[in-house]
Design a protein around this nucleic acid. Structure first.
Lengths: 182, 182
DNA sequence: CCGCACATGTAAAGCGTTACATGATTGC
DNA sequence: GCAATCATGTAACGCTTTACATGTGCGG
């Protein structure tokens, strides 16, 4: 969706945890919070420049080896304030669910459509796999019960994603079982 | 999200149910399937022109009153074939959940953050309201048990949305109850 | 005759993905 | 030396939203 500057706030949020380079931010989007938002480096680098021009972040240069320059960004006081304001501000808009599978279902008119079992089984495979991935991440990050209180927000949204995926898998299983002659 | 032509397929799907004008399609996105996909008329009209140029749809002109011309579009055989192929094709990509509220949670580090109760209560209000809206729609559309078999796909995705919202509300209630000193 | 809904379009800007492009460092 | 990874950027394209723009029909 074309939301208002959401990526900018996410970057401020990540930088508030620890200063990062553009590359490290890209890695975070690929692995750490890829479950909740995606962004490529081609979007991140220009945005970092723009945010710096606006005074939200600032960078220092680190030299690795003899030549390689890394720009490590951190929030300015203003950036930190903008982040805090965003988190505390109302979120009146709901998530826009753009689930292509669900849309395809919409255009299946009859319960005995022969495509349905295959479609549902494919989604079951995908969502079960994802559920396993999320469970592995919870095991990895929050096996230690203290970790949950240290990064409460992270724990919360991982729990939310797990709940959602379990529900999705269960729903798919129920619908598959309910189909005629399956 | 920038998906591959999804809107085009949705239009083909809607037109396969009944021929429609651009205005009627816009209304459908606003009301009928707004839960699953959004599109404004400024995106729909140009796309209809493009799809007609590609031979997927064709229109006839209806005159209302003395002057007002309405273009009623319907699928060509080719358009219908493209729709069928899309519905039956694999859907390997998962829905990208871009839930701004969940992102904000991620950046709340501590369980005793004073912003949390308010944030969760706001979402509870929004999602309870939405749940009621969905329940009203099911009552309206599928009170008659025959209706579900007539429009099986529509019944399915409404059921899916209801399941998802009930789960979301329940999760929010649990987290709110679990917060310290609330 | 006035206001609202009906009806159709274009323009501009922002958001997001894919592809293009370059170079350095590290470990084997 | 070579490959994988680290590191940073730009370009082109497509999707989506917001705003601009115009005119008709209908009911009160």
């Amino acid at each position: 969706m074309a939301q208002r500057n959401t990526l900018q706030y996410i970057i401020l949020g990540l930088l508030s945890q620890a200063p990062r380079t553009g590359y490290e931010l890209t890695q975070d989007f690929a692995h750490e919070i890829g479950e909740f938002w995606q962004a490529q480096h081609s979007q991140i680098y220009p945005l970092l420049g723009k945010m710096e021009a606006q005074g939200l972040i600032a960078h220092t240069v680190e030299v690795t080896g003899t030549k390689l320059e890394k720009k490590r960004y951190r929030n300015t006081a203003e950036g930190q304030a903008v982040l805090t304001a965003w988190v505390g501000s109302p979120t009146p808009t709901m998530a826009t669910t753009k689930d292509e599978f669900v849309l395809k279902l919409y255009f299946v008119q009859r319960a005995d459509d022969t495509r349905l079992p295959g479609m549902i089984k494919e989604q079951l495979r995908i969502h079960r796999e994802w559920l396993q991935h999320l469970e592995a991440r919870r095991q990895l990050l929050f096996a230690d019960p203290d970790a949950a209180s240290q990064q409460f927000g992270h724990y919360l949204i991982l729990d939310h994603a797990l709940t959602r995926e379990r529900q999705y898998v269960q729903w798919l299983e129920e619908q598959l079982a309910r189909l005629p002659h399956n």
